[in-house]
């Protein structure tokens, strides 16, 4: 089944027992890299050494969520940063974390705790077109793919992992994942079987500053 969903290739895997870099490339069916996809590594056993805590920034910029999709792992935290010169009212009313807070021009908010794994769909109650996702993964390692489709992890503790890729616009019939034993530097590919759906454009119909709610 999994073999049908994705092709993977481990290119280089010498036997050395220390933290090793891992690169995962998420590819579209036409083999081009797909950017902005969440990639995380689930481990069947508790990690002997916690991965370093990341603070992941979710910006409100140009009246949109940037990035559109953010992923955090077990030890990561999130800070919301409003780069616009207007107030946003960020909310999530479904899923594992339900919250709402206003964030004013230039403010940061690091108060939100995300302990329950799951998908958090976020919106702004002032700008309805704003749409963003936070994936809270029960994973030791998590990141998103770069503009060439690569998710790069600097140092993975050796062990057995399930590598999972996810994006709200994926149209795969099941999870895009594979099992991997990390021993040394590894590179692998995950290929979509279906092209992703179009990401909703985060832009209002009235694209003006000084809109006043009329």
């Amino acid at each position: 089944m999994l073999a049908n969903l994705c092709r993977w290739s481990v290119l280089f895997m010498p036997l050395l027992c220390q933290a090793a870099p891992l690169s995962v490339r998420v590819m579209a069916p036409d083999a081009t890299g797909v950017s902005g996809v969440a990639v995380y590594l689930e481990s069947g056993v508790p990690m002997p050494v916690a991965a370093p805590r990341r603070t992941v920034e979710i910006q409100q910029k140009d009246k949109s969520f940037a990035p559109y999709l953010t992923v955090i792992g077990n030890n990561d935290k999130v800070v919301f940063t409003n780069r616009d010169d207007i107030t946003h009212h960020i909310y999530s009313v479904n899923g594992p974390a339900r919250f709402s807070f206003k964030i004013r021009e230039g403010e940061e908010n690091a108060d939100q705790q995300f302990n329950q794994p799951g998908i958090i769909a976020m919106g702004c109650n002032i700008h309805d077109w704003m749409s963003g996702y936070l994936l809270v993964a029960d994973a030791a390692y998590a990141t998103t793919t770069d503009s060439d489709g690569w998710a790069r992890f600097d140092a993975i503790e050796p062990g057995d992992y399930r590598v999972v890729a996810w994006h709200p616009q994926m149209r795969e019939p099941g999870p895009l994942s594979l099992q991997l034993t990390v021993q040394d530097r590894s590179e692998l590919n995950l290929q979509l079987t279906q092209p992703m759906a179009e990401i909703p454009r985060q832009k209002g119909i009235d694209d003006f500053d000084f809109l006043d709610g009329y």
């Binding site: 009235d206 003006f208 000084f210 809109l211 006043d212 009329y214």
Partner: peptide, 17 residues
């Protein structure tokens, strides 16, 4: 209040862009 009718008066103080 103004009734919700206008499609052009959307800016500060009911100005039109």
């Amino acid at each position: 209040l103004y009734p919700t009718v206008s499609m052009e008066n959307v800016l500060t103080a009911w100005a039109s862009p």
